[in-house]
């Protein structure tokens, strides 16, 4: 698959001197769903703003569909739909006119048939003549999506699309994203919610402190998640792992008070039963057992912690 968005060495320092992005490079593949995870203030929105033309990069280059976002901004921006994080809508206008406006602004001739399809897909058709201010928060968020889709973008940015929406709407949103992917639209979404990234994304990027910490296939990440650790606390200290237990690849915990066994929960056999009986055979007395799954959250927290390297 080719890359539809290419970001190279992007830096953004705001006027006040705050550096929001530090030499960010990112390739977004055509047709994928990329989830950008990161805490507040990590630079997610700044990254999107630079790609979409709302913020001016301090240095670095961005191309969308091969078009430079500054030198060839018309061609680049025509490919992009943006759903902002804040609900920014003209309150006094009707849903229909607000969406028509977006299509025209992006250089497309009027096509009420297409707008009808978009509104129907987002369950907004019944509300087409309602004023935006009369809609609920969830409906307003759908209007934002309808506006972004009104000009048939090839790349759709969803900046925290499900922040503060109820469970039902979140499911709807996920379905919408899945359908758009089916139509070949590349989707980049930012989120705090790890479960959201897990449910939707093909790849997951973690952004923190103004830089991309990792971008990996979700499957690869999930395999890492499949790892589980069992900590066996011992009654007596050991100086080394007994020879009879070598095949379990055990690690000796601090002070020799515990043994740590790593295993794959996805595997056919975890080997726990055998290990425990072998421990008993070695005459080792146990005090306690704990198991712990490393979650995406752990990886995430480890990456974004302030004191992380």
């Amino acid at each position: 698959m080719s890359d539809i968005v290419v970001v190279r060495d992007l830096e953004k320092t705001y006027e006040g001197g705050v550096t929001a992005l530090r030499r960010v490079s990112l390739d977004i593949r055509q047709g994928e769903i990329l989830a950008l995870l990161g805490p507040n203030g990590a630079g997610k929105t700044t990254l999107i703003s630079c790609i979409c033309g709302i913020s001016q990069p301090t240095s670095g280059t961005i191309t969308v569909g091969g078009h430079d976002t500054i030198a060839d901004y018309r061609a680049a921006r025509a490919l992009i739909g943006l759903v902002p994080q804040e609900i920014n809508l003209e309150p006094f206008e009707t849903v229909m006119n607000t969406v028509r406006f977006s299509r025209g602004l992006f250089g497309k001739g009027s096509d009420d048939g297409l707008i009808e399809r978009v509104l129907r897909q987002l369950s907004l058709w019944d509300k087409r003549d309602a004023k935006v201010m009369a809609l609920s928060g969830g409906m307003k968020r759908r209007v934002l999506i309808a506006k972004a889709l009104s000009h048939e973008p090839r790349v759709l940015f969803l900046d925290e699309p499900t922040a503060g929406v109820d469970v039902e709407l979140r499911r709807d949103m996920w379905d919408t994203v899945a359908r758009l992917k089916g139509e070949g639209v590349t989707i980049i979404l930012t989120t705090h919610y790890i479960e959201e990234a897990e449910a939707m994304a093909d790849r997951i990027g973690v952004i923190a402190k103004g830089d991309i910490q990792l971008v990996e296939d979700k499957e690869t990440l999930m395999r890492r998640l499949g790892q589980k650790q069992m900590t066996i606390e011992l009654h007596d200290t050991l100086s080394e792992v007994p020879a009879g237990l070598e095949r379990y690849d055990l690690a000796l915990g601090e002070d020799g008070h515990s043994l740590i066994y790593s295993y794959d929960t996805q595997g056919a056999r975890t080997g726990i039963t055998k290990l425990l009986s072998d421990l008993a055979a070695e005459g080792i007395v146990l005090r306690d057992i704990q198991t712990r799954q490393s979650s995406l959250e752990d990886i995430f927290v480890g990456l974004v912690r302030e004191d992380a390297p």
Binding site: I54, A76, R77, I80, L82, N88, L89, S102, G107, K147
Partner: peptide, 12 residues
């Protein structure tokens, strides 16, 4: 009201 984001991101 914040809708300027759309003007700034438009190919205009």
């Amino acid at each position: 009201i914040g809708t300027i984001y759309e003007l700034l991101s438009a190919p205009a």
